[in-house]
């Protein structure tokens, strides 16, 4: 069953200063099944964040359709929640206060339920004991856990993740990837995950969609054949490296083509 469907989506930006139009996303069609983990990889400037912002309802779009459960997306909604690259936590609220912030804004749950869910998701992301701390007392990795807990607590149908681990150091990132899979196996949400790291995408996702830059187009979708649960050791499996390599070549081809185009200009 299709949860999130994107059909012939294009997005144009008008650059006031250069007085020209840029096609950020060009004719992208993609269907994400219920409970599926889909990752989108691509070089910077390929429009993947634009795509996520459109799905989140934070950016308007004119061409194509985006729908969740056959309902067209027209702005933010309670059926989606976003985990941002910057943890975007309210510095004057405690961890518990931040986790409940999304629920508070959406006003779907009563007070008792909110308290219960806050407690549950703080525990799920492994932050019990830190409820009364403030964000600036936490490490980057812990802040991203809060960010994730806030999104999950809002009980979305689709979880949108915008390079959530990009700002973390390499070790923390690996650890957080494994944690995310563990949490996801319990929460079982449909996930759209944006990243520029190929091995992150292959490790996490059921399918990996590769985008190309200028204009941002969907190049190819790779099905990842590994079962779950996955361990970090998978990253050293020859078959894993093969897929990673194939995606890498596709992106490299792209960037070479782009360099040639730019050189001609």
């Amino acid at each position: 069953m299709v949860k999130l469907s994107i059909e012939h989506l294009s997005k144009r930006y008008w650059f006031e200063r250069e007085d020209r139009e840029v096609l950020a996303v060009s004719d992208v069609s993609l269907a994400v099944a219920d409970g599926e983990f889909l990752a989108i990889v691509g070089p910077s400037g390929c429009g993947k964040t634009t795509l996520l912002n459109i799905v989140a309802g934070l950016l308007p779009y004119e061409e194509g359709t985006v729908s969740i459960d056959d309902k067209q997306v027209r702005g933010p909604g309670v059926d989606r929640a976003v985990v941002f690259q910057q943890s975007s936590l309210l510095p004057w609220r405690t961890i518990a206060g931040n986790v409940r912030y999304g629920m508070e804004l959406q006003r779907r749950f009563d007070e008792a339920t909110m308290r219960e869910r806050t407690e549950h998701f703080v525990k799920l992301v492994g932050l019990n004991g830190f409820e009364r701390h403030y964000p600036n007392e936490l490490s980057g990795g812990m802040q991203q856990r809060v960010n994730l807990a806030r999104a999950l607590a809002a009980d979305p149908k689709v979880l949108l993740m915008d390079e959530p681990f990009a700002a973390l150091d390499a070790q923390t990132r690996e650890f957080m990837q494994a944690e995310l899979l563990k949490i996801w196996s319990q929460a079982r949400k449909t996930v759209l995950f944006i990243t520029h790291q190929i091995n992150e995408a292959v490790y996490l996702a059921d399918r990996v969609a590769v985008m190309s830059a200028r204009p941002g187009r969907l190049k190819e979708v790779f099905k990842i054949p590994f079962g779950r649960p996955r361990t970090l050791a998978l990253k050293r499996d020859p078959r894993f490296l093969e897929i990673e390599d194939a995606i890498w070549q596709l992106i490299e081809e792209e960037s070479q083509r782009l360099n040639m185009v730019l050189a001609e200009k």
């Binding site: 934070l58 933010p76 929640a81 941002f84 912030y101 804004l105």
Partner: peptide
């Protein structure tokens, strides 16, 4: 801006942005 984006993603109304972001942020 990041906080504003987050609040909007969670369907915050103008009034909610005012009371939960603008006021405490200006203290």
């Amino acid at each position: 801006r990041d906080l504003l984006r987050a609040a909007k993603a969670y369907c915050a109304s103008d009034w909610q942005i005012f009371t939960t972001l603008a006021i405490p942020g200006s203290v």
